[in-house]
Design a protein around this nucleic acid. Structure first.
Lengths: 212, 212
DNA sequence: CCTTTCGGATAACATTTGTTCACTGAAATC
DNA sequence: GATTTCAGTGAACAAATGTTATCCGAAAGG
């Protein structure tokens, strides 16, 4: 394994500057309207230098997807690592989401905006990562005692519901003004209630498959 | 009440041409990158004529929101109008959503894209309409026998969960190729399962408020 | 130490953009 | 029937865009 090299690290620095500048600009617009010159101007480099790192703003968008989800992976691993009781899981999950919204607001806004945005490759990148998340969660759910009797596809289905719901909670939190504590608590309460309904449904999934 | 007038109807026609052209263009990009000239070109009128109808492309976006949701209101009223048994509701709901995706694909894609998109006024317009939907649904749920014992805020919470889930199902269907029947059926099955979990959770909401 | 590599700067280009202004001609008003 | 209203045209503008080619200088490699 070789050293990074001085030139390579400098290159990574300006690449990061481009990503940071783009992320800041994307709080007020979407990727398909993000201009190449706009980004280089904000990053403090010449327009032509952009091509040393990305061919497109679309390609830059894909890089942002991976950057945004790298930190999220670690965070989720944190929850499922420690074995918590079921009644704590809901509270802890919502707290973790809220913390992520607080700390990585720009990243999350980008994901929410581009998940159904105008750039196909970015949509695909996000969908792939979200699917992987659901896979990981399904594998984790399979180890829990509550999942006795659950088929593998059903667990995957449940996991995707949780992932979707987490994303929904996160985007709802994005709409809340960060210092509006009343609205924040209202949103958090709704998120907890939604999770509780899903958990209740999960508990009774095997009760009466045909009776419903 | 006066007649529409010949000139007024002609104006409405070109306005509609602008909306149609914009909607077509927005299948491959998002509103914040939609150009005024681009729209007028596709609609077949001079760029300057745009200002006779909208001040902005943002304003055009808001008009599109209302156009998209007008037809949806009628559709939802259709479901809740006829009293169907609970076990049919899930199947019918998913069918209606699937039908809407088939018939109003472009409108729905626009809504999904701009719900968290880069244009604040459009986001606000969509959020307002979605909230109204949840209100209507909550009022409808209150009349049903299954809702005995539910508080009003809890019904509102449940309604918003249903609305969110419907939107999620619709956007999932948008990602499916229209002629890929296998993928379509897979997506529909997942949607039905998700709805069933929520419905099960709803049935047991009052069971054990504190036990969870 | 000399040569190659390569991230970045500078300058120029053809296009496209939003907005304005004065205009035209047909519908509406009196 | 004369006059006013007004949706749409055509031309012009300054500004901004993506992309290319050429050059510079420092790091990397021999």
């Amino acid at each position: 394994m070789t050293e990074p090299g001085l030139r390579a690290t400098r290159k990574l620095q300006t690449r990061q500057a481009l990503l940071d500048a783009a992320l800041a600009l994307l709080e007020q617009q979407s990727l398909s309207s993000l201009g190449l010159r706009e980004v280089t101007r904000a990053a403090g480099i010449a327009p032509a230098a952009f091509y040393r790192h990305f061919a497109d703003t679309r390609e830059l968008g894909v890089a942002l997807v991976h950057e945004a989800l790298a930190s999220l992976h670690a965070m989720v691993a944190d929850i499922r690592g420690q074995g918590v009781a079921t009644d704590e899981v809901i509270a802890r999950t919502v707290d973790v989401i809220a913390g992520y919204v607080r700390e990585r607001r720009a990243h999350l806004r980008f994901l929410a905006r581009e998940r159904h945005g105008g750039v196909a490759v970015v949509r695909a990148a996000i969908a792939a990562e979200a699917g992987q998340f659901a896979d990981e969660l399904a594998a984790d759910l399979a180890t829990r005692p509550e999942s006795r009797g659950w088929s593998e596809p059903d667990l995957r289905m449940l996991a995707s519901l949780y992932v979707d719901q987490a994303m929904l909670t996160a985007t709802a939190l994005l709409e809340v003004e960060p210092d509006d504590t009343a609205a924040l608590e209202r949103t958090l309460a709704a998120a907890r209630a939604h999770l509780r309904i899903i958990t209740l449904g999960r508990m009774h999934w095997l009760d009466q498959r045909l009776a419903l």
